[in-house]
Write a protein that binds this DNA or RNA. Sequence first.
DNA 1: TGTACATCAGTGAACGCGCGTTCACTGATGTAC
DNA 2: TGTACATCAGTGAACGCGCGTTCACTGATGTAC
Lengths: 222, 222
Amino acid sequence: MPKSSAANKKIRRLPGRPAAGTLDQREALLDAAKLAFARHGFAGASLRSIAQDAHVTAALASYYFGDKAGLLAAVVDHRVAPLAHSLGAALMAAGEDPVVQLRAFVQAYTLTASRNPWLPQLIVREVLNEDGALRETFAPRFAGGMTAMLRQVIERAQRVGAIRDDLDPARAVMSLVSLCIFPFIATPLVSGALAIEVSENTAASLAAHHFSLFMTGVEDAR
Amino acid sequence: MPKSSAANKKIRRLPGRPAAGTLDQREALLDAAKLAFARHGFAGASLRSIAQDAHVTAALASYYFGDKAGLLAAVVDHRVAPLAHSLGAALMAAGEDPVVQLRAFVQAYTLTASRNPWLPQLIVREVLNEDGALRETFAPRFAGGMTAMLRQVIERAQRVGAIRDDLDPARAVMSLVSLCIFPFIATPLVSGALAIEVSENTAASLAAHHFSLFMTGVEDAR
DNA sequence: TGTACATCAGTGAACGCGCGTTCACTGATGTAC
DNA sequence: TGTACATCAGTGAACGCGCGTTCACTGATGTAC
């Protein structure tokens, strides 16, 4: 009769088919992977360390996701995509007024990023990578749609007279996105040298700062 | 008599002490390393591929710089530091008027970054890394000093009445830096989805956009 | 209800590979005479 | 000026290591009877 040896320092599963309902190991892997990829990059994060964080075997990652690239793709599908879609939804749900839409986007993004700091870090890291798998996957899938939406909103704001119409709308989108994203990827600079608190508590205040700086800098003074 | 075999496909040095004056192999290694680290990250760039780019043996990198971390440190010392110092100098040389100083900084940074796109990419990458060697090296050495200088200039602008004094100066620095740096690290987004040209040709125009957006967004409307 | 068995989720050990690093060695250079 | 030799910049092959991945195997589960 096999007996779980309590003498073992490590708690480890017995071989053989495990009890049902333990299938959230897949979720644990995705969570550990999203954090590790954001912290150390795709190349710098090893499957063994990710598996260890998830209390799981490294072989399980290959078993579930095929290979390391498949794990990254799954992180994008099941962790990044839902958040990206919810940002689009927040912009859409804000009504017709383009200024209100922009404020809603900035608020939604800032809150999401403060709750999930790994998100902008993972994206920037992998979009930065010239050979990054995400570069061909992510940019067209999310960044493309998101920036296109923002661009339309800004062009509408220009037509309505809320934003100077001599401003290049693409550059306006770029600047808005810069203001929103950068504080979350420059953490050591922001919370270190500048001593700014970036957290869920300060998210509303930070969003207000970014939105008002952008809108004032951009508004039609006529 | 040893004869350089012209039949070899690869042009390779003969063993033994080489002719004098070929010592720019060190420089070639630093240039190849700065590009590789910026493109693939510290973990993702191999010494063998860097050495190949520099037309040099991998063993030479260890011979010159001790180890891989030493190569990164040398890149910081001999490639990053001069550019960082020249930015500080540009700000200092701009006189007393804080608004003029800020414009000078934005112009100098934008021109430098458009000429050396690897610079912001390398910095963001390694400062992003939780275990990055640069995180403890770079942030205190450059980012700290640079943000402290900008902060002083902005506080002076507030005293002079050029910037609203209800604005948190640290947040103002963060936003200015966000506007300047982000466009150079989000290349696939900026030159892809947004179709914005970021190059030495457009640097002046881009700098003007960032400076005017920032100053208008931030100025004292009294 | 009890027993026999096919299924298959997950394992653990091993695989080859590319990595950073080391080191005995090479031979043109610069110096001593 | 010519020769002998110590120096040392750089090499190439080898090192051990950790990586991603594979695969024969395990045994609880769910099903058939």
